Simulated scan of single mutants.
Amino acid sequence: MSAPECAMPQSQRIDWVDYAKGISIILVVMMHSTLSTEDALGHAGWLHGVVEFARPFRIPAFFMIAGLFVAHTIDRDWRTFLDRKVLHFVYFYVLWLIIQFAFRAPFLVADHGALGALQAFLTAFIDPYGTLWFIYLLPVFFLATRLTRSIPPVIVFLVAAALEIAPIDTHWTLIDEFASRFVYFYSGYLFSVYILRGAAWSRSHMALVLAGLAAWFLANLWLVHAGLSTDYGISLALGFAGAAAVVAISVLLARSHLLEGLRYCGQNSIVIYLAFFLPMVITRIALAKTHVITDPGTAAALVTTMAVVTPLILHWMVRGTMFKFLFERPARFHLVPAKPKKTTLLPAE
């Protein structure tokens, strides 16, 4: 087993990677929206089943796709690497931490006092805060991948897999999520050539791919329903199988040119991830107080829609304005000159 020697050309990547990112980000937003809406309304709805079905693979797929193109930057000089893969995410994490905290601070002060609120804010710099943990973990994963290049990849992979299987529960998000998720990110990097070849193969073997997806769907559904999907070892297998299914589905969607809106969400996945929290909370509170929609499933679907669409609208509104810093890192926060503008974003950039 060796580190990847090449990666997919940009034009090929546009074909299906954005669909995979779109599927992943919508599933993540759906999870947060559904569980919080059900908690607010007091009982589960029909969307809960979709959230549970996706639980084994939504985050593994997200991180595996994020790791696919690490080979593009892993060998660059340290200054460029830190700018592209560390400072980039640090900027957005700190910015949106401040934004989220500004809204949450009054409630934290009321519940824990000013000192408790300040402690929560400072703790967020050593342990990721709320829904922003994904942005926090990405630069950690990039650094871990670069710093372990001198170690045989098979050893890194086996250790990462063992961490996922091990019953690690420290109640520290950074430690627990690193242990649970790094294997998928590293696999995206390590097996990128094979993942991309498999995606290309899927294009011309639709019948076999559909049969495989059907088998995966039934197996995933049964294991989730039986309560076995989180068992040690099974969760790892389902994570990889589900991530592969997301890739296959994305290839089929790209091949058929279906659901262009889903691809657009994938192109702007970081925009959605950064900003979905506020519209999600506002919509959820409005529905809970007005009782316009009492069915928790329908309410959760509406909350999910608003949480996905609103950040895209906000992104469109602030482009070219003084507020573009919300989604575009200003030049003064770069270690090296910014890259030329692209029509789409590279995975995890």
Rank of each mutant, 00 (worst) to 15 (best):
S250W: 01
A161W: 08
S256I: 03
I99F: 13
G239S: 10
R181E: 09
S11Q: 12
H225N: 14
I25V: 15
A66V: 03
I285V: 15
V308D: 07
A241G: 11
T230I: 09
P152Q: 13
A275D: 05
D75T: 13
H112P: 00
L223W: 05
F57E: 01
R146I: 08
V86G: 13
L213P: 15
G130K: 04
T80D: 11
L163A: 09
F121T: 09
M280Y: 02
F277V: 15
L223T: 13
V17K: 02
G227Q: 09
I285S: 12
T73R: 10
F178Y: 10
T145A: 15
F185M: 02
F101L: 08
L27W: 01
L218H: 04
P279S: 02
Q10M: 03
G42M: 07
P337S: 01
H334Q: 12
F327T: 08
L97A: 06
A307E: 07
I151W: 07
F323Q: 09
L253T: 04
Y232P: 06
A71R: 14
G49F: 00
M64Y: 05
P279H: 07
F69M: 15
A110N: 10
I25H: 02
K21P: 04
A44D: 13
G42L: 06
W201T: 15
D77G: 13
A162W: 11
I175F: 11
T343Q: 10
D295H: 10
R255P: 00
F62E: 03
A244V: 03
D295S: 11
I99L: 12
F323D: 06
A241L: 12
D15Y: 06
V17M: 06
T294Y: 07
A245R: 01
Q100I: 11
L223R: 02
F92H: 11
V309R: 06
V154W: 05
L262F: 02
A245L: 03
R104G: 10
T80Q: 10
L163W: 01
L87S: 03
V109A: 04
S204R: 05
G22H: 02
V246I: 06
E52G: 04
K342E: 13
